[in-house]
Nucleic acid binder design. Structure first.
Lengths: 199, 199, 199, 199
DNA sequence: ACTAGCGGGACGCCCCGTTCCT
DNA sequence: AGGAACGGGGCGTCCCGCTAGT
């Protein structure tokens, strides 16, 4: 048994995120997490004071990173954001299709379940969503300045709509468990993105 | 307290739907439902063989009806569907804004939670979603024939995208608990709808 | 398995009182009580909402009755209370001696442990103590009127002192686990009682 | 924070005694003791092999000293023991009244809880009680020799009765949490003491 | 035929005293 | 001496049968 501190903590967070992704936060059983992570209850409660705080750390340290890696960092350069967003969606969709069941967006799933019940989750997931939305707004603004995106758009609204559309598509795919709904959704997202481009 | 059999069953379903809407299916406690409905456990299990089957009946008899009332039936006439959808969304958003917390779409919430875990929920919620999507597809087709909607669109894709956008907007509002996100989303939905109209 | 309601409840209370008598309230394990009573957790929590409320019912329904049977009811007639108290103490001491460990007074044990921590226990045990003390005060008053007990005594103080002495003796015997301390204590109690008698 | 080894040990014992006084031995949490003492778990188990042995040391090194200071040493001179005991009781009662909740006698509390369960506590607390009782017996004997205390008394019985009365009064006060019960008890104790004096 | 509610038992999270590696 | 890891047990909750009675 490893006694490496950071390892145990990290393993718990990653196994926990997967459990929550699969069963929801309330449905996630600590016992299952512990078995899967090969960690005992004592170790868990040494690192985290409660299941709820553990959930907060999952948002802050695991889910936030996943969102940043998929939706924020690819837009940091000056590549065409409209194309980048579409490509990243398709890359993500390909990942989702690869395993059953289709699980959708870990951030949205968790937020849907817990935000109306618990403010701690609400403020943490909201920070991640805002980071995402602002990164879209910023990238679209820079592209607008370069003459790629049409002028005269409220980019805050546009960024919100894109995030909404992406989350909506992933929701419907999770609901239907049909891979083709990801493909249909990708086409719809591209249409929305292209409608923003200067002709 | 009514002794009418159908009444008891109906009351259970409606109280149950509200409980599930508030706490999720796994988080919904039978005891709370029974207390609120003024029904005993014996009566419950006389009407429904298990909590899971009870959940199925909630989808089939309560949630399906709510979706039909809000999104399907308003499109059955020959009014402009683009306007009708926008108006119905705004009417629904006004209802959501009225109470805290903002709870979003009962169908999507339940499907998000249960569909990856249980096929019984998946097939039932999927039928409701398909009914919704097909009603959009049909109404848009009729409007296209009347020259209201642009030709050359894949209406199946468009209907899917509209449902996705609506569910995405409601998700984000549930997540953020900010009423203004409903307003922002309504503007975004109108923009999407108007982009379908012949110029 | 019996499904007699009153039986199950009564058995739980009696087994629970014994457990608390042996291990204290905090040290009493519900699982041990359940095993010994042959009752499952579901049944327990059907009858009592929590361990704490269960403890309250033990005080009200079991301990109060034991105190009344030993210290209150024997004084209800017009026999000489000084002799009656001494005799009842000796009868009780004989019972305590019969089993190891020597456990002392169930009321005092529980009150000692819980009263500073929980007002619910405090008010309930206090009511039992007050009933006891007042019954002594009343019986001594009637005996005073008959010329058995010396005049000029504050009978409230005297009753308090007798209860204190009894509880003190039982405490010391529980502490030492020496049966002879009950005998020594009985002699001391008789001396105190006789000092109240008219010469 | 002192790095002195004896200091750490002493601080643990004193904080531990207070914790046990407040919550009982079984209810005393090591984590709370450690936090309050500013000591780590490693250090604790370096000084004491287990919680139980720690409890034994609390009895031997802290509680025994408190009892000696209040009840034994004041009687070592040749002052009137009847008066001295009454005065010391009143001094102690004044201390108890000062803080809420009223906590009673640390020795008796601990003995009540643990003696029937664990012989290690029994023998150690019993030694303290015996020391107390013998000091009363000795002081009363010397006072008897000086003609202050009535002849013809079994001083072993009397000493036992006095300790019992004191512990009984403190028990009742802890149970009721009423400061006036200390005052009533003090009057009762004085009456018992004066009944021992030569007229 | 239907209601009433007791009883069953598995599992949930959390906390505890203790061990052992550093 | 420091602190991560250990694992068993605590109470409470849950969904669900099943017996009795109306």
């Amino acid at each position: 048994v490893s006694r490496n501190v950071a390892d145990t903590r990290r393993r718990l967070l990653e196994v926990g995120q997967l459990e929550v992704y699969l069963h929801g936060f309330q449905g996630a059983a600590l016992d299952r997490i512990l078995t899967r992570a090969g960690v005992t209850k004592g170790a868990f409660f040494h690192h985290f004071p409660s299941k709820t705080e553990f959930g907060y750390r999952i948002v802050e340290e695991v889910v936030a990173e996943k969102i940043a890696a998929q939706w924020v960092r690819p837009l940091q350069g000056d590549a065409d954001p409209l194309e980048t967003i579409a490509v990243e969606f398709e890359r993500g969709a390909a990942g989702l299709r690869r395993r059953r069941p289709i699980l959708g967006c870990p951030l949205n799933n968790l937020a849907q379940e817990m935000n109306p019940l618990d403010d701690g989750f609400r403020v943490r997931t909201l920070a991640v969503f805002e980071n995402w939305r602002r990164s879209y707004e910023g990238a679209l603004g820079r592209a607008q300045a370069r003459g790629v995106v049409r002028p005269g758009l409220d980019l805050g609204d546009v960024a919100h709509a894109l995030v909404a559309q992406i989350e909506g598509i992933l929701s419907l795919a999770r609901n239907s468990q049909r891979p083709e709904d990801l493909t249909i959704g990708a086409r719809g997202l591209r249409r929305s993105l292209e409608s923003l481009r200067v002709d």
